[in-house]
């Protein structure tokens, strides 16, 4: 059991990081901390993906001189997925930060619970 966990230590670490990020995004009341949680969660997924594609002792998938046989390189597909994922994550973080700025301008706090109370009072 522990030997298996030790062998797959990158995957285990990625899953723990995913849990930390998920918990922060769900439970933190501060918007900025939530966004940090979101980024930890997404990064954990990239770590997991990158570790899937990595093969010990092989090179980065950039053919140096013409076409060389594929067995010398790591699997390039997960790296491509990570790049796509980063683009998605950046745009989502930007949108969340934009929303945070809007909320802060209006209610002068980053605490989501306080904002909810204020909004409720506004419409009573």
């Amino acid at each position: 059991m522990f030997a298996e966990l030790w062998d797959n230590y990158i995957s285990v670490g990625a899953m723990i990081l995913f849990g930390i990020g998920f918990g922060n995004l769900l439970l933190q009341r501060n918007m900025i901390k939530k966004i940090i949680g979101l980024n930890i969660m997404d990064t954990a997924v990239y770590l997991f993906l990158a570790s899937l594609g990595y093969i010990e002792g092989r090179l980065a998938p950039i053919p140096a001189e013409g076409a060389v046989e594929a067995t010398k390189y790591i699997n390039p597909l997960p790296s491509g997925l990570v790049l796509t994922g980063i683009v998605v994550s950046v745009s989502v973080s930007a949108l969340m930060l934009g929303l945070t700025v809007k909320l802060y301008e209006r209610y002068h706090t980053l605490d989501l619970d306080e904002i909810t109370t204020m909004v409720r009072k506004e419409h009573e």
């Binding site: 995004l25 769900l26 918007m31 939530k34 989502v92 949108l95 969340m96 929303l99 945070t100 809007k102 909320l103 209006r106 209610y107 989501l112 904002i115 909810t116 204020m118 909004v119 506004e122 419409h123």
Partner: peptide, 13 residues
């Protein structure tokens, strides 16, 4: 409105 932005934030999270 304020409550739209709040609803959008909660939806996003």
């Amino acid at each position: 409105w304020g409550r739209n932005i709040l609803a959008a934030t909660k939806y996003m999270i």
